[in-house]
Design a protein around this nucleic acid. Structure first.
Lengths: 248, 248
DNA sequence: TTAATGTGACTGACTAGTCAGTCATTGTCA
DNA sequence: TGACAATGACTGACTAGTCAGTCACATTAA
């Protein structure tokens, strides 16, 4: 703590110096169970001989560890020493896989979103109703994003986006604009079929998606104060847009 | 710049070494004009004699500068040296007004929200319609938050909330829970009066507010890619909830 | 054997927080 | 009113660290 102040022999475990240091042994605390992902270190059990395979495995461990740390602390506050420790790897190893901290962060965000992007090419509802299609999206979103580490990634993008224009650009191009376009198409189809009464909605597909984003943010910030039943909320929202309940 | 690497005499302005350093002279770049606030340094023109007055003025300068820096960089990446420079003050002066960086951040966030909280006690729509009341909220929100530095503060809370539970708590207690309660009351009134057809909406006032939050986030992240007419979007959203257009 | 792979001690650029000293302002007395 | 003393806001060089990135050396699969 202070320089030469006559402080008592031991600070009461308050903040020792600059940033909190204590027990760095457990980086980013427990963070959160995240999804049932392979344990950060150690090979699961497979023998897997090839060096390339082991290297890929280590790379994956680094990615998992780094994501957890970045989610828990944000970009700047994350220490690569902690990432390495959590991944069960030496710090130098990180630099065998990534150019530097910044490009690692960007690549992580990109990689974590690829699975999301795939879902946007969902088949247009030729057979079923538009509502079914939108409900499918919502269900997928809840399962794959809202109740997953990927939800935190969305929050991370909101948090760090302004300082990483490249990430904001990428996210807009690859996710936001495509997602909104898909939603707009669905809305227009819904209007054409008479499922959606409010025609103006097609001008702002954001309205359709807004509660889903709220759910993600709520999860990160306020879940411990007041849990939010995202599934129910999205259902109510869809009822609002498509008219009262159906059979479901 | 790297340690002993044979780098060319001057990096092409890319990343010199650790964090970006270049031209620290202008902290946080231009950030953004923000609202028409008093210039960071120098007394505007008033004589203001008293020492206390000058001190208060400096304190305000520090607050403004710190908010700009925190918004532009986030908590950890903000350097108090830059805050001091921007405020036209020595670094030590900051510590005459704030205990440390962390409590400064927390106090700033709290302070910046106080004006918001006041708006929540808006008069219930005894005379006018519920829609008018909600529209009033929306208009206020656009004017006072979405198109203001306060919008960035909301994003900042989303960004740093998980690392500052005290802030998330405060924000939930003072803003979110109150705001949602007020909205719920309005919705129930609207349902009772027959202005709102969808009764379930009262269970999730978040749906009413969601597009407003989206607008704020959009402003920070994607405005340069695709501008969003927040006013129009909120109007469409209200049409969706209250039924088609009125006279306005 | 040996080249690819991994390690972790090390460097040095960087920063939160400190404190002895300065000096403009305010208060007091002749 | 003017001179002198007391005050405390303000300063900025300094301390005690922190951490991204490096590299000489160790390990191991082929």
């Amino acid at each position: 703590m202070s320089n030469s102040r006559p402080t008592p022999p031991e600070g009461t475990s308050s903040k020792p110096g600059h940033r909190r240091r204590g027990e760095t042994a457990a980086p980013a605390e427990a963070v959160k169970p995240a999804l049932p992902m392979a344990p950060p270190s150690e090979p699961p059990s497979e023998p897997l001989s090839g060096r390339a395979a082991r290297a890929a495995e280590r790379r994956q461990a680094i990615i998992d560890a780094a994501l957890d740390e970045f989610i828990a602390r944000g970009f700047t506050a994350t220490r690569l020493d902690d990432v390495a420790k959590r991944a069960g790897v030496a710090k130098g190893t990180i630099y065998l896989h990534f150019k530097d901290k910044e490009s690692m962060f960007e690549e992580l965000i990109r990689t974590a979103l690829v699975p999301l992007i795939g879902r946007l090419h969902a088949p247009p509802p030729i057979g079923g109703s538009v509502r079914d299609a939108v409900e499918g999206f919502a269900r997928t979103f809840i399962q794959e994003v809202a109740s997953t580490r990927r939800g935190d990634i969305v929050r991370l993008i909101v948090a760090e986006g302004p300082r990483f224009p490249a990430i904001a650009d990428f996210y807009y191009r690859e996710v936001v604009s495509r997602g909104l376009a898909a939603m707009r198409a669905l809305i227009e189809l819904g209007v054409a079929r008479g499922e959606i009464a409010h025609k103006e909605l097609a001008r702002f597909p954001q309205i359709l998606v807004a509660p889903a984003l709220i759910a993600v943010i709520w999860q990160s910030l306020f879940a411990r104060h007041a849990p939010l039943d995202a599934t129910e909320m999205l259902r109510v929202h869809l009822d609002l847009i498509f008219g009262e309940r159906r059979t479901t």
